[in-house]
């Protein structure tokens, strides 16, 4: 507990769970792609779906996906900004009793590649990203993350981890396709990796796709 838990952050209103958390989940997607997507669909669950407009959650999510900061005054205008930059977006509701009531599933496309991120705004601006492209995880946005699709062959993972000079905080794994022998890993790190490390990782023969997501806040 610190004084800074009760004073601050500087944010866009009206509420930390409906705007701040939503901006951060949206920004996770922006950082995953490295830029804004070509198109995006937000599936809102539970309390998010019923009153999202009155809370500004739609503008917050969209602002986040556009890469805006927690206190960017343009978030208010994100719908207009998204339209003018040619980002196609849609909001939809979905029912799911098992997830946190303030959950959003963000499905987006960039250069023909589909991404699918599930996140919950769990209060006070805190977030939990719990599924990224089919891999179950629990990311709070406060640590840098690497998302890698690799060849599912013996030794692949250790090859990847060996290249990292940084302590690994958490590791989430999933086999994607048995026939194509692909798997995915989410590697949560204690510190940001160097550019060189990321380049070297991309060059590994076992690495098929690699995304680096710096910390969100």
């Amino acid at each position: 507990m610190s004084i800074l838990d009760v004073v601050g952050p500087v944010m866009i209103g009206p509420s930390s769970s409906h705007t701040l958390g939503a901006i951060r989940i949206g920004r996770f997607v922006n950082r995953l792609l490295g830029e804004k997507p070509d198109s995006v669909v937000f599936y809102l669950c539970g309390s998010f779906s019923k009153t999202y407009k009155g809370h500004g959650t739609d503008r917050a999510l969209l602002g986040g996906v556009l890469g805006m900061a927690d206190d960017d005054e343009n978030i208010k205008k994100s719908i207009e900004i998204a339209s003018s930059t040619g980002l196609a977006f849609r909001f939809s509701a979905f029912e799911n009793e098992e997830v946190h009531p303030n959950t959003v599933r963000i499905e987006c496309q960039k250069n023909g590649i589909l991404h699918d991120v599930w996140g919950a705004s769990i209060g006070g601006g805190a977030i939990n990203i719990f599924r990224v492209n089919g891999v179950e995880c629990s990311l709070n946005g406060k640590a840098p993350v690497i998302f890698v699709v690799n060849r599912d062959v013996p030794g692949a993972l250790s090859k990847i981890l060996n290249k990292l000079e940084i302590n690994v905080a958490n590791l989430y794994l999933k086999r994607l396709n048995r026939l194509k022998l692909t798997a995915a890993a989410i590697i949560e790190l204690d510190d940001a990796p160097s550019k060189k490390t990321l380049e070297e990782l991309k060059k590994l023969d076992v690495v098929l796709e690699l995304y680096y997501i710096p910390k969100i806040f």
Partner: peptide, 18 residues
């Protein structure tokens, strides 16, 4: 009211009580 119009605020201690 600034908060309720998606303005920039300092949460203190929360947005509702800013």
């Amino acid at each position: 009211e600034n908060n309720a119009s998606m303005g920039r605020i300092v949460a203190c201690p929360t947005a509702g009580s800013c």
